[in-house]
């Protein structure tokens, strides 16, 4: 089975992870712009981080046969530094317009402060202007209220639910999110957020219609193989193959495909090229071979 991990922070992961992910069947990843575990202190750090997401990290992923996409946004924690946030708002449109930027995100609330609210709303308007879907991060603390509030604000800005993925759900929030027509993301963490076992129960209860699993793996305790591992556990526990495929591949494709920049052909084509590499004088292929070699030599 092929998998997409639609939420993973690859800049924090190793090449071993990339190899394991590729071997496990992950064909594409989406890396939402996020914080670094400690707050940035100036806008230049954002600029370099954003350009890493569309530059080096994208190239690095390609070395391991994985297509890398990203979402751009100011995360809720750092929205609380107003002077810096203003500058990030100036900077963002340049990056939102770039190739392979498939949504605005992850944006939303952390402590649900007035500043978080301000920049959440500004970025929702940017999503409308650039005609992109939105990835909403829901808070760890006061999660239920934060999730409900996020959805109200999205609706207030006139963005239809089918263009919005509410992420990091749990049993308490899933129903409200799905009932209102939003896409529901479930982050499978080894210790916190959702566990694989709880996810099986969620899949059994809510089916596969708008449910998406991701790893949100980053610099903390997390597992870049959460998506394929959860898929395996769901299959073992009687969730149908068709449902597992939707939850772990197709739904992410359908949701982010709304950006017009996330197409199955992107990775299917490259696989064909890979298999035919000895006799096709294709330029994409020449690039790829050279990339792989030189990456190893340069490091």
């Amino acid at each position: 089975m092929k998998y997409i991990d639609p939420h993973i922070h690859m800049v924090s992961r190793t090449t071993d992870d990339y190899e394991a992910m590729q071997a496990a069947g992950i064909v594409a990843v989406i890396e939402p712009a996020f914080w670094l575990g400690q707050p940035r202190t100036n806008v230049g750090s954002f600029k370099d981080y954003f350009s890493t997401l569309v530059g080096w990290e994208r190239f690095r992923a390609s070395q391991f046969g994985i297509k890398h996409y990203c979402t751009m946004g100011l995360n809720s924690k750092e929205a609380n530094n107003e002077a810096m946030a203003e500058q990030v708002m100036e900077l963002l449109p340049q990056f939102i317009a770039k190739e392979g930027v498939v949504a605005i995100g992850e944006i939303g609330y952390d402590d649900q402060t007035a500043l978080e609210d301000k920049y959440f709303r500004i970025q929702l308007e940017m999503a409308k202007e650039y005609d992109l879907p939105v990835l909403v991060h829901t808070p760890h603390r006061d999660k239920k209220q934060g999730t409900l509030r996020s959805m109200d604000v999205v609706k207030e800005h006139g963005i239809p639910p089918h263009l919005v993925l509410i992420d990091h759900n749990n049993e308490e929030t899933a129903k409200a999110v799905l009932d209102q027509g939003f896409w529901a993301g479930f982050t499978i963490y080894p210790k916190t957020k959702m566990s694989k076992k709880r996810m099986v129960a969620v899949a059994q209860q809510y089916g596969s219609a708008k449910v998406i699993v991701d790893s949100s793996a980053d610099w903390g305790v997390s597992d870049p193989l959460s998506v394929p591992k959860t898929a395996a556990l769901m299959l073992e526990n009687g969730v149908s193959k068709a449902d597992v495929e939707k939850i772990c591949y197709q739904n992410a494709l359908s949701f982010y495909g709304q950006s017009g920049q996330f197409n199955e052909a992107d990775w299917n084509q490259e696989l064909t090229v890979d298999q035919a590499d000895l006799h096709l004088g294709n330029s994409v292929l020449r690039g790829q071979q050279a990339e792989k070699l030189s990456f190893k030599k340069e490091n």
Partner: peptide, 9 residues
């Protein structure tokens, strides 16, 4: 140049 992605570069 400071913000360009791969194909832009």
């Amino acid at each position: 140049f400071e913000t360009a992605e791969v194909f832009e570069l």
